[in-house]
Amino acid sequence: MTDDAVVDLADVAFGYTATPVVEEISLRVESGEYVAIVGPNGSGKSTLMKLMLGLLRPDSGTARLFAEPAHEFDEGSRLGYVAQHASASKEMPITVREVVKMGRFPHVGFGRLSESDWERVDEALDTVGMTAFANRRVTQLSGGQRQRAFIARALASEADLLVLDEPTVGVDAESVDAFYELLNSLNEQGITVLLIEHDLSAVTNHAERVICLNKQIYFDGPTDEFVDSDALARAFGTAAGIVGGGR
């Protein structure tokens, strides 16, 4: 059973200083799941993501990624990562196609992209509906379009785990809906989706499973049960009033 897990954390604790940011974290994410991690600001969501991806090593406990110790995992092409780029204002001149092309870098190493690599790039652009924008400069795109370009990069790398760290911050409401539609359809195609979110309405509408975090796990189960539970109030404290108040 353990070998099937995409992510497997057992009693993980981590702190940048002596104070732990997360502790007593045990969870498994199976292949094909759509999991959302929610929690208030500073609850350790991004830290947990870094532990899962092996960017940080736990102070205690074990973190495994595709059945390997997470920090030793080196098949980078299996992982797709999308951050809060919409809010970042990088002025770098780079086209959508050049961004998506980076998804092939783990496959080609120091070499050049072959014809089949470029085909994967074009397919990925097509899947997210960005073919018409392929030669546009990324800085000229709207937040939603930009995030789809980053999804396309993960698709081009043929990732089977897609990790998104608050991807819809700074994206307009209409685009957010379409963005989650896209995630749903990718999940239906078998890609494991791990979504770190601040916007609870998006989570309850789309994810199958919710992990509610505030240093420890307050809830881990199906989304319906999460909505009915009091985990939110306990984890968020007085800030629970933000449910449904997505940005």
Partner: peptide, 14 residues
């Protein structure tokens, strides 16, 4: 031309 439906491509006008 998204396989998952045109609605994905028809959102977010600038």
């Amino acid at each position: 031309r998204s396989p998952s439906g045109g609605q994905i491509a028809s959102d977010d006008a600038d």
